[in-house]
Amino acid sequence: MNDFLVTYMPAVVQYWDYIVKAIWETIYMVSVSLLFSALIGIPLGVLLVITSRNHLLPMPALNQILGFVINILRSIPYIVLVIILIPFSRKLIGTSIGPEAAIISLVAGSAPFVARLVETAIREVNRGVIEAAQSMGASNWQIIRKILIPEALPAIVSGITVTAVGLIGYSAMAGVVGAGGLGAMAYTHGFNGFKEDILFVTTLLLILLVQGVQMIGDAISRKLDHR
């Protein structure tokens, strides 16, 4: 086994420590970005639904402004977003390079996406169930907490899974701001460094990561779904 690796993947063996570090960088960037995207995106998604017409808290103006801002953020290509946000991250965290800087642009790119997915998920919640809760005397906040989110949870989890997979892809591009990770490794050492074995192994690792995330997400969503 060792002989095989040394013969056919010399660079992988040589750079193995860096690859392991890159795996953790990717996992770190993706999970932290995902956490913040969910923390921002889920409330925004809920707000998009309840402020729409004929819903719990109709606020047409707010609803339209919110939708508009989300659409703008979603239409900017990620690579452009990274560059636009360089001055912003310098102000916010004191640096415009490294994983933390990447996280800022990743969150800016995926939180609006989460918001839209959550919006769709919550819109699917049966109106009759909301009405039943109102007939019991539930407040809007109780309806959000006890009806809308629990009933939409499997769909929200699916949405978060899709976002996580997307983030793995985007995090590769975040190498531009020196964020590291598997994508940067594949590009700088594998592609630019003509080390095909590194290109191969890092790509393989990204595939495994995506598959793993998708499997876990599907399993959670299935477990939550009692329809």
Binding site: V129, E131, A132, M136, G137, L153, H226
Partner: peptide, 22 residues
């Protein structure tokens, strides 16, 4: 107060309107 008053008025629906997550 309306919400409070509604607790004393039960309602049953044609399509049951149960939460399938519970």
């Amino acid at each position: 107060q309306l919400r409070k008053a509604r607790r004393k008025i039960g309602m049953v629906f044609q399509h049951f309107n149960l939460l399938w997550s519970r």
